[in-house]
Amino acid sequence: MIINNLKLIREKKKISQSELAALLEVSRQTINGIEKNKYNPSLQLALKIAYYLNTPLEDIFQ
């Protein structure tokens, strides 16, 4: 099972779900679904998340 630290990292960087969704060009519901482990992001989306949060991919999804 993948450990998902997206919410923790996003909140630590003081970025809202809506702000991150806008940067990634996805819906806020997509971010919410990823954070609640209801949706697994594509590799492309996971890499974009890591880029915009300036955090290694391995720290977000373990």
Rank of each mutant, 00 (worst) to 15 (best):
M1K: 12
M1N: 12
M1P: 12
M1C: 15
I2E: 07
I2D: 06
I2Y: 11
I2K: 11
I2V: 14
I3E: 09
I3W: 07
I3A: 08
I3D: 08
I3M: 11
I3T: 13
I3N: 12
I3K: 14
I3Y: 08
I3V: 12
N4C: 07
N4Y: 04
N4A: 03
N4P: 05
N4H: 05
N4F: 05
N4T: 04
N5V: 05
N5I: 07
N5W: 08
N5Y: 07
N5A: 06
N5F: 10
N5P: 01
L6K: 00
L6P: 01
K7M: 06
K7P: 04
K7Y: 06
K7T: 07
K7G: 08
L8M: 14
L8N: 13
L8H: 14
I9H: 06
I9Y: 09
I9N: 03
I9G: 02
R10V: 07
R10Y: 05
R10C: 09
R10G: 03
R10Q: 02
R10D: 05
R10W: 07
R10H: 02
E11N: 08
E11I: 13
E11W: 06
E11Q: 12
E11D: 08
E11M: 13
K12T: 10
K12H: 11
K12W: 08
K12S: 13
K12F: 09
K12L: 14
K12E: 11
K13P: 02
K13V: 07
K13R: 12
K14F: 08
K14I: 05
K14M: 10
K14V: 04
K14Q: 13
I15T: 04
I15S: 01
I15F: 08
I15M: 14
I15K: 05
I15W: 05
S16M: 04
S16T: 13
S16H: 04
S16V: 03
S16K: 08
S16P: 05
S16D: 04
Q17I: 12
Q17V: 14
Q17N: 03
Q17G: 04
Q17D: 03
Q17F: 03
Q17M: 10
Q17P: 06
S18G: 12
S18N: 11
S18C: 10
S18F: 08
S18W: 09
S18A: 14
E19K: 13
E19C: 09
E19P: 00
E19Y: 09
E19I: 07
E19M: 12
E19N: 08
E19F: 09
E19A: 14
E19G: 09
L20W: 02
L20F: 07
L20Y: 02
L20A: 00
L20T: 02
A21F: 03
A21Y: 03
A21T: 04
A21K: 01
A21S: 06
A21M: 04
A21R: 02
A22Y: 09
A22R: 14
A22D: 12
A22F: 10
A22G: 11
A22N: 11
L23I: 12
L23E: 07
L23H: 13
L23N: 07
L24F: 00
L24V: 15
L24T: 12
E25D: 13
E25Q: 15
E25K: 15
E25V: 07
E25F: 07
E25H: 14
E25T: 08
E25M: 12
E25A: 12
E25C: 14
V26P: 00
V26K: 01
V26F: 03
V26M: 04
S27A: 06
S27R: 08
S27M: 04
S27F: 03
S27G: 07
S27K: 08
R28L: 15
R28S: 11
R28G: 05
R28D: 09
R28Y: 09
R28C: 12
R28V: 15
R28I: 15
R28Q: 14
R28N: 07
Q29A: 14
Q29T: 11
Q29L: 10
Q29I: 10
Q29E: 15
Q29F: 07
Q29S: 13
Q29V: 09
T30P: 02
T30K: 06
T30L: 15
T30V: 15
T30W: 10
T30I: 15
I31N: 00
I31V: 11
I31T: 01
I31C: 02
I31G: 01
I31R: 00
N32F: 05
N32S: 13
N32I: 15
N32Q: 15
N32Y: 08
N32D: 15
G33L: 15
G33P: 01
G33F: 14
G33E: 15
G33N: 15
G33H: 14
G33K: 15
I34Q: 02
I34L: 08
I34V: 04
I34P: 01
I34N: 02
I34Y: 04
I34D: 01
E35R: 03
E35P: 00
E35H: 02
E35D: 03
E35I: 03
E35L: 04
E35Y: 02
E35S: 02
E35N: 00
E35F: 02
K36R: 14
K36W: 06
K36H: 12
K36C: 11
N37C: 13
N37G: 15
N37I: 04
N37R: 10
N37E: 06
N37A: 09
K38A: 10
K38L: 15
K38Y: 14
K38F: 13
K38G: 06
K38R: 13
K38P: 04
Y39A: 06
Y39V: 14
Y39N: 06
Y39R: 09
Y39D: 05
Y39Q: 09
Y39C: 12
N40K: 15
N40V: 15
N40L: 15
N40P: 13
N40M: 15
N40F: 15
P41D: 03
P41K: 01
P41C: 09
S42W: 06
S42D: 09
S42I: 04
S42M: 04
S42E: 05
S42F: 04
S42H: 08
S42R: 06
L43T: 07
L43K: 10
L43G: 07
L43F: 12
L43V: 09
L43R: 12
L43P: 13
L43E: 08
Q44V: 12
Q44L: 10
Q44R: 13
Q44N: 11
Q44Y: 10
Q44A: 14
Q44K: 14
L45C: 06
L45H: 02
L45A: 02
L45S: 01
L45V: 05
A46K: 15
A46S: 06
A46V: 06
A46I: 06
A46P: 04
A46W: 14
A46E: 04
A46N: 02
A46T: 06
L47I: 12
L47A: 09
L47C: 14
L47W: 06
L47P: 00
L47T: 10
K48P: 00
K48A: 10
K48S: 05
K48E: 06
K48C: 09
K48D: 06
I49V: 04
I49E: 00
I49A: 02
I49N: 00
I49M: 06
I49C: 02
I49K: 00
A50M: 05
A50F: 03
A50C: 06
A50D: 01
Y51K: 09
Y51A: 09
Y51D: 09
Y52K: 04
Y52L: 14
Y52R: 04
Y52Q: 07
Y52D: 01
Y52N: 04
Y52P: 00
Y52C: 08
L53P: 03
L53I: 03
L53R: 00
L53T: 03
L53V: 03
L53A: 02
L53S: 00
N54L: 07
N54P: 02
N54I: 05
N54C: 10
N54G: 13
N54H: 09
N54T: 06
N54S: 10
N54R: 08
T55Q: 05
T55Y: 07
T55A: 08
T55K: 04
P56D: 08
P56G: 05
P56E: 07
P56K: 09
L57G: 02
L57P: 05
L57E: 02
L57Q: 04
L57M: 12
L57A: 05
L57N: 02
E58L: 11
E58V: 09
E58S: 13
E58T: 11
E58Y: 10
E58P: 08
E58Q: 11
E58I: 10
E58G: 11
E58N: 10
D59P: 01
D59S: 09
D59K: 11
D59A: 11
D59I: 11
I60R: 01
I60P: 02
I60D: 00
I60A: 01
I60M: 05
I60F: 06
F61P: 02
F61M: 04
F61T: 02
F61R: 02
F61Q: 02
F61N: 02
F61S: 02
F61W: 09
F61H: 02
Q62W: 12
Q62R: 11
Q62F: 13
Q62M: 13
Q62A: 12
Q62P: 15
Q62V: 13
Q62K: 11
Q62Y: 11
Q62S: 12
